[in-house]
């Protein structure tokens, strides 16, 4: 799941200054799960913005709110067709993908990001999320006993641990577990310690072109249509 946190209120207020009518748009998937932009947070932000505006006394925004099931596919955005005519901007509480999907779908509409999309991860406990995947496109979890050194090792090294590991913790952050110690312990338990003894050659991150694209289509070429993102 994609994890994000809501931007500070000041930043959001600064962004919306040029626009009078603001639609606060929530997302019912990842952003709901990570408490950043679900329906509850949309309505809380809505209230906070109204209170802040009333407090300042010299702003004249009008706010409205709506929550989509998902923002990251154009079909979900169809219901907005008759809403965007009445607004000057959409403040999206979707992740960065949602914001861009909106921008692509509505070329003439300014779209503002309401959250800082942070990582892909999972809940450690209620209200706490940890990063777990860097989307490197070259998964080695088979070799590392299901623990990703790219994300969980501060240095992201493939042949760990480094000399900075101490009592199972990382030298960069003494509260954080050393990913390679975790990998060792789990390999030991799985009786696969020989995987520790192998050497994994360097990976050439420069060779991975961006933006990436995956296609499951076999016979049809996908051709980029010239886009006008306004």
């Amino acid at each position: 799941m994609i994890v994000a946190e809501q931007k500070p209120l000041e930043e959001i207020r600064r962004m919306i200054i040029p626009y009078e009518r603001v639609l606060i748009l929530g997302c019912g998937t990842c952003m709901t799960v990570c408490d950043a932009g679900g329906e509850r947070e949309v309505s809380f932000l809505h209230s906070a913005l109204r209170v802040a505006q009333a407090k300042s006394g010299n702003e004249t925004h009008t706010f409205s709110e709506y929550t989509l099931k998902r923002q990251c596919d154009p079909e979900f955005l169809d219901v907005l067709d008759d809403k965007i005519d009445d607004v000057d901007t959409v403040l999206s509480l979707g992740c960065g993908i949602g914001v861009q999907a909106l921008a692509e779908r509505f070329p003439a509409l300014p779209v503002l990001p309401g959250v800082n999309t942070s990582f892909m991860g999972m809940a450690k406990e209620l209200g706490v999320w940890d990063e777990r995947c860097a989307a490197c496109g070259d998964c080695r979890l088979e070799e590392t006993a299901g623990i990703c050194p790219i994300t969980r090792c501060t240095k992201g090294i493939l042949n760990g641990p480094c000399a900075g590991t101490k009592n199972g913790k990382c030298e960069a952050n003494k509260d954080m577990d050393c990913a390679w110690v975790l990998i060792y312990k789990r390999l030991e338990r799985l009786e696969q310690l020989e995987k520790m003894r192998r050497y994994y050659p360097m990976r050439n991150f420069r060779a991975i072109p961006r933006p990436k694209r995956i296609t499951s289509k076999i016979s049809v070429d996908v051709v980029d249509v010239g886009e006008d993102n306004g």
């Binding site: 309505s43 109204r50 706010f63 409205s64 709110e65 809403k83």
Partner: peptide, 8 residues
């Protein structure tokens, strides 16, 4: 603006 604007 209306006090309770709830387009949803």
């Amino acid at each position: 603006y209306p006090l309770v604007a709830d387009n949803n």
